[in-house]
Design a protein around this nucleic acid. Structure first.
Lengths: 216, 216, 216, 216
DNA sequence: AATGAATGAGTCTTCATTCAT
DNA sequence: CATGAATGAAGACTCATTCAT
């Protein structure tokens, strides 16, 4: 297929540097992750970093943009197949947890290290995050259209509940040295969200079939 | 005498340094908040700082401990007067938002700057935060006892929803330069939480079976 | 065939690189004139520079040697036609000012940027300059032979006055952003030099007393 | 006496750093004169440099300003006692050469290293030099008033001859490793300047004998 | 002859902390 | 208790030069 080239196909050094950065930052923390350490881990010279990235901050931004881009792409693909907002919400939570469950180093970087940066950088990170928050918004909108969610549900607030909660859950998990499986929490989180968002008087139609049908 | 002495009663320099730190960090950001700047703002010599604090990190820890202590004390006082879990939950949200609404500098420090620190410091911050999370836990427990909240409500998850959400809301508010009033959001947030946590005695058609059926 | 080949005749890339260097150095200053910038301006690859020049210093040396060679050649041609030392001196000054008046970029390079180099390079530059100083020396010698200049005129000192003065004049002019015409100064400079160098057959009035009185 | 405190009286570290800088720069060249080397030579910590100087450039500027200030002060004192422009001119040349003769390291710094700097710095250096050029200008003006110098003498040109020449002489001397005594050149230089600047129609009494009589 | 991606050595500056007064 | 001058460790980034193609 001739889509956009992914990290794997082109710019091998770019990819290697990003992967090295994730590892070195996860292991040492952002401030102790010297450029020279990242270069060594990537198997390139210090100067080579600067052929691909403007500066150290740019590595972090690019790393997050790259990973988040892939993450969003995957989620959007999965969401397309789902016909109900509830299924979509379930898929989002599951994808979010799965991705971080599968890449512990990246989880550390995104939950802890990425935040140890100045306000300016945080704003750039937020811009990237915006696209993800849009996906959440779309699910909420969809749920209101299909009638699955209460018509008076505040979109921004619902989004903050969803993102705030799963982010807090992941951070707690990372802080606890990732001792348990994030993926095990999907069901409960989903259920609580649904409880809060659903129409109250019309919950008769949420048939057993509907619910189970989207379970893998 | 009424319990432990507060910031106001003793050690005027200690108090001045903490207040100076909040101001300087809020205005300059954590990394640009040099000890000398804090000393200048507090009207003391650089060296004096070290008579009251072990090191720069200790200022931050103490600042958070001090402020959070007062915050928790206030909340506990208010909560005592409330007889229902729902009232307690409402009071918690209201107190949380009110405190930060009233001290913008501290809001910046706690939501943005305090997080720009290394893992070690974050762990210490979490220990302090623990006491606040305990308050949340107690409300949840209480609600389950009174029957206001579902018996099968996962305490940790509920706490993460509550804290994750209000934290995300405050952060968004700070990032948006605190343009609106946090306090105006209390009602809606409270309702959504209640929606999710409440016993579903009016949820005739959403049978208990339905809900559990798709849990693993 | 007419002597050594000039810049115009052969090695077009060599010529292009030198001209590019003059332009880039004049516009950016010596230290901001990266080899890659010069290569880009010359329309060649970075590596190509090293097929024509040993290193960056060598570009500067070659540039100066090349330009100074042409300058000296022109002056010698003009001087051949002059029969008196005074005419020769006038011609030298005029040529010096004219050349720099006509190539502002080169004037900046030679008066300001070429001097921002280390001692070693300065010695090499002085070696090239030596040939030019020889031309001055020859004029002074000639003037002493024809009797136009005082027999006791110190050759080295006279040369230092001539070169030191015109160099200072050009530097001042460059520093003042070349706002005026150098060529307009030729007459006055020439006259002052002649005043100082000429035989004084009419110097009766400077009494012994005057001279000795201010010696310590 | 309670005049302004000189380098010797106050700020011993400031003075030590400047003297160390002169030595280290003279021995290593400006670009090889690392701040750490200067600090070591001065017997202070690297960071101490920055309590007294804004940055490395500022050391150079301050060094020149300090030394030039002292130099100008001395010259002005000596000039006050002189009643004729010729005496003043003689004194200026003598002072200039004497100062540099007595401090070879400073001579290297001022003639070679101070010039290895970018345009911006050169402009700052020129501002400091301006005060010295003013002294020269005053002598020329004075000579025109007393009638010692030609009324039509161009002030700027005369100043450029004086400064350009003595600067060129000193640079040549430094480049030749200061093998001879600068002070020995004073008489001849003075004589040549006078020759060029004097009124011509009144020079009847300046006999050849007169001129040579005060040469050593 | 020409390219240009890759290399890696080298240094100024900041700022938390100390300690003599 | 209080001061503030002095300390010194630590690292991102540039750019002249090389060499495989």
């Amino acid at each position: 297929m001739k889509g956009r080239l992914t990290l794997k196909d082109k710019r091998p050094k770019y990819k290697k540097i990003i992967e090295a950065a994730v590892k070195v930052i996860a292991e040492n923390g952002y401030h102790a992750a010297q450029v020279s350490k990242i270069a060594k881990q990537a198997g390139v010279a210090d100067g080579t970093i600067y052929l691909y990235f403007k500066n150290k901050e740019d590595i972090l931004i690019s790393l997050f943009k790259e990973k988040m881009g892939i993450h969003i792409e995957k989620i959007r693909e999965k969401l397309e197949g789902k016909r109900s907002a509830s299924e979509k919400l379930y898929t989002l939570i599951e994808s979010h947890f799965t991705q971080l469950d599968q890449d512990h180093d990246y989880a550390i970087v995104t939950q802890l290290e990425l935040r140890q940066t100045n306000r300016e950088l945080r704003l750039k990170i937020n811009q990237i995050l915006k696209e993800y928050l849009d996906v959440i918004d779309e699910i909420i909108e969809y749920g209101k259209i299909t009638g699955e969610f209460r018509a008076d549900l505040d979109k921004r607030l619902a989004r903050q509940i969803i993102f705030g909660t799963i982010d807090e859950i992941v951070t707690t998990w990372v802080m606890n040295d990732q001792k348990y499986q994030l993926i095990d929490l999907v069901e409960k989180v989903y259920e609580l969200f649904m409880n809060g968002f659903q129409k109250r008087d019309t919950q008769a139609s949420f048939s057993q079939t509907d619910v189970t049908s989207f379970q893998q």
